[in-house]
Nucleic acid binder design. Structure first.
Length: 425
RNA sequence: GGAGCGGUGGCCGAGCGGCUUAAGGCGACGGUCUUGAAAACCGUUGUGCCGGAAGGCACCGGGGGUUCGAAUCCCUCCCGCUCCGCCA
């Protein structure tokens, strides 16, 4: 959520943010409602001052004087009722609109309409040239008996799958490696709920807006988080943290659930776009300072690059353009791994910087030591590793001419030292 | 699923119709003392909104009601806890 004062000060900035990011929010209407609400509250406040005065006098009075003051009081209250009614009608509309105002993108974010206009910052690693006809991950996985999509669909419908044998072990190896990597960098590991209250979904900015992408337990009014960003970021919501606690650095492993509504027919092949997967996620909660935010944005990006480099996967980093930014994101780096079967770099990580957008929604503050003020924290998040999506480049890039797959060195300790996945194991 | 209990400031906790801008404690901050620290003692210390300021207004889980007046009484919703039952 944006500070209404900022919107009053510079409506143009937010109108442009709506345009650049592709969100339709009527800023003029918002400001009109703001003005109306403020006027009403001012009237109500002035009346209250009067009423409080009268109320102090009345108990000491009697007879005519008392009667007359009581009447004045009741006249004042008649106006109150009317104004309160108006506020009650306006306020929820205003609040709903406030939740929709997007965060303006940073100045160094490229202008663009969608992910095709993201700007490559750099490439790392070499794309492998095959001297044989390579298989895609589905073919490899099926031949090796480690991926079973057909029966996944039988069990749970489209976009579902099973991992088996070394496939399952490889999946967990990747996750465990990523978790250990982050713990090694000082992040606090958390095992978290994935079925969360609306406050957490609204607080992180997924609601309103992404209800269609979310599985929901209607009876219990709980939603399955599509990422551990939700529980990790909302973990401390409503709290006033001590300044010296910051930055908070969390890493969590969770299953992630996404309905992928509206994506029918898109990325239907293989393990790229699926309803359920596992992900190690990192979240940083820091002081209200754009320098700090910038610093940790780079840190969480470097963490994930470290994981990709350890896995020896070629990737590139993109500066995500305005049209591909979420409502709350001021800037985002995507890491895209090379995927031979898709003949391109495809998103495996997404590092977001949100300033106080989420913290304001979830009332997450800290006591600033210098000013003694309660300030909203800044929040950031990034994928550490998401599997099985990352198994696509791993399987495809590490495949051998004989159909076996070499296991990346850093994962071998998590697979009993095994070096290769071969058929029938 | 059954039965109870409770939600008060950064935290704990008293208050149960006007004296509450919420007792008391803890914590934090400042000071005295000390070579330094601890202890002790003294003092300060909620949030948000309106206003140039003086000041005003609101807030004791949310909403509504009773009353001249509500943290305190009533209704309702939300959240939490305890005990019993079932169970990974």
């Amino acid at each position: 959520m944006i500070d209404i004062k900022e919107i009053r000060k510079n409506p143009q900035k937010f109108k442009r943010a709506c345009k650049d990011k592709g969100f339709a929010v009527d800023i003029d209407r918002l400001l009109k409602m703001d003005k109306a609400l403020r006027d009403l509250k001012k009237l109500l406040q002035d009346n209250a001052t009067y009423e409080n005065m009268l109320q102090k006098e009345i108990p000491a009075l009697s007879g005519k004087e008392r009667e007359s003051k009581l009447e004045t009081l009741s006249n004042l209250k008649r106006d109150d009722v009317e104004w309160k009614k108006n506020i009650k009608e306006l306020q929820p509309q205003f609040d709903a609109l406030m939740l929709q105002v997007p965060q303006p993108a940073d100045d160094d974010v490229p202008l663009g309409k969608d992910d095709t206009e993201n700007v490559e910052i750099r490439k790392e690693g070499q794309i492998r040239k095959f001297d044989f006809e390579p298989k895609d991950h589905v073919q490899l996985g099926t031949d090796l008996g480690i991926i079973d999509i057909e029966r996944g669909v039988k069990l749970a419908g489209t976009r579902n799958y099973l991992l088996r044998g070394d496939g399952a072990l490889l999946h967990w190896a990747v996750l465990r490696f990523a978790m250990d990597f982050m713990v090694g960098r000082g992040y606090v590991p958390l095992s978290v709920p994935v079925l969360v209250r609306d406050e957490a979904m609204v607080g992180t900015g997924f609601f309103p807006g992404s209800e269609d992408q979310t599985y929901r337990m209607e009876k219990d009014e709980l939603s399955f988080a599509g990422t551990a960003e939700v529980p990790l970021t909302a973990y401390r919501m409503g709290e006033i943290l001590k300044g010296e606690e910051l930055p908070l650095k969390y890493v969590g492993l969770s299953s992630c659930f996404r309905r992928e509504a509206g994506a029918a027919g898109k990325d239907t092949y293989g393990l790229y776009r699926i309803h359920q997967f596992d992900k190690v996620e990192q979240v940083v909660i820091c002081e209200n300072s754009s320098q700090e935010s910038r610093k940790y944005h780079e840190e969480i990006l470097a963490n994930s690059e470290g994981v990709m480099q350890a896995l020896e996967l070629p990737y590139r980093v993109a500066n995500v353009c305005t049209g591909d930014l979420g409502r709350g994101q001021a800037k985002k780096f995507d890491i895209e791994a090379w995927m031979p079967s898709r003949d391109g770099y495809c998103e495996t990580h997404s590092a977001s910087k949100l300033y106080e957008f989420q913290a304001r929604r979830m009332n997450l503050r800290y006591k600033d030591a210098a000013t003694k003020k309660n300030l909203f924290c800044h929040t950031l998040n990034n994928t550490v590793i998401a599997s099985p999506r990352v198994l696509i480049p791993i399987l495809e890039l590490y495949q051998n001419a004989d159909g076996s797959v070499t296991i990346p060195k850093v994962l071998r300790p998590y697979m009993n030292g095994k070096e290769k996945i071969t058929a029938g194991t």
